[in-house]
């Protein structure tokens, strides 16, 4: 992708995204709802076309020519309610260019892999929502695509099925398939991806491996639990090297001054007062995201954003009008 831009009327959904995804990797698209993840994915799928910019998929000018080599699980996933699971999957497989011969065993095999061995003859509407979702996942990988694009694949799944799906995605990746998936739940990306692309308000704000991100966004912060509890916040703030202190969920988050070595700071903290716990805070993607968006500022902005991210766990429509 190069300089890709897409607008819906006056609203700019995606602005100047440059991106290249190497074959065989697992890429996570993260960002809050409405950030432009789905629009970006739809453009990769050639369901939408960019207003500006270049794009190539699997070596072709657009996905139109290589649709049969791509597996796509849209966020707005649907199913023919009245159709039988078997006929639905067969229909999708045939649409994706599979031959009738050998299709049924292939469908059966996949249904067994997602732990739904008995649903072939059931109507789609008889399945639970989670089961339907697994059927839809099968529909997207049935034709053995080289590129698998999953838009919010985990939403609505229970932890057991989430793990099952994650291992299936891993398997496909180990077989050399490229996987792109999007999520607004950042920790899912942490668990699955080796590379993360962060999109915010239609712009790419981050594009790196998880390791590099962690290294780069070392927050220079410690979690501190003084024996005296949160009341000790002022005392902790007096300790040299501490920039400021925020109480978070019963403990204190301590941000260090520039150029202070966290190891030394821990020593001086332990020396200053009795502690239950002092540890280096590992940056989560959520922290990284907030860091990027607020430009490193703390306080009300960050808290609000954090709340928004949490609220983002409920599904809402990716507005386009």
């Amino acid at each position: 992708m190069q300089g890709v831009r897409k607008t819906f009327g006056p609203k700019v959904a995606v602005e100047g995204i440059d991106l290249s995804i190497p074959e065989g990797s697992i890429y996570g698209f993260i960002g809050p709802n409405g950030a432009g993840k789905t629009t970006t994915i739809r453009m990769i799928m050639s369901i939408l076309f960019p207003d500006r910019g270049e794009l190539s998929v699997l070596g072709k000018k657009s996905a139109v020519e290589s649709k049969d080599r791509i597996g796509y699980l849209p966020e707005e996933r649907g199913i023919y309610k009245k159709m039988k699971v078997g006929s639905f999957l067969t229909h999708m497989g045939r649409l994706k260019g599979l031959d009738r011969a050998g299709l049924k065993p292939r469908v059966m095999e996949w249904l067994e892999r997602v732990d739904l061995p008995d649903v072939y003859k059931k109507k789609c509407e008889e399945l639970s929502k989670g089961m339907q979702q697994k059927v839809q996942f099968v529909a997207s990988v049935l034709h053995d695509p080289d590129l698998i694009i999953l838009d919010e694949p985990f939403s609505g799944l229970d932890p057991v099925n989430m793990r099952l799906l994650r291992s299936l995605i891993d398997d496909e990746n180990k077989r050399g398939k490229t996987v792109i998936f999007s999520t607004h739940v950042m920790y899912q990306a942490e668990q699955n991806c080796d590379h993360v692309v962060m999109i915010h308000q239609g712009r790419k704000v981050l594009d790196d491996t998880l390791e590099d991100i962690r290294r780069r966004f070392d927050p220079r912060a410690l979690h501190v639990d003084p024996i005296g509890g949160v009341a000790q916040a002022d005392a902790v703030g007096q300790i040299p090297g501490v920039a400021h202190v925020t109480p978070v969920e019963g403990s204190l988050e301590v941000v260090l001054d520039e150029g202070i070595d966290p190891q030394q700071a821990m020593q001086s903290l332990l020396g200053a007062m009795p502690m239950n716990r002092v540890e280096i805070k590992r940056p989560t993607l959520e922290d990284v995201f907030i860091e990027i968006v607020t430009g490193g500022k703390r306080g009300a902005d960050a808290a609000q954003l954090r709340a928004e991210l949490l609220a983002g766990n409920t599904d809402d429509e990716e507005g386009e009008s």
């Binding site: 799928m45 597996g71 849209p74 996933r77 649907g78 023919y80 309610k81 999708m92 997207s140």
Partner: peptide, 16 residues
């Protein structure tokens, strides 16, 4: 039906 079922995007991933 296809639109309100949201099955349409699944179909669009397979055909234009």
């Amino acid at each position: 039906e296809e639109k309100s079922n949201r099955v349409v995007e699944v179909l669009l991933s397979a055909c234009s």
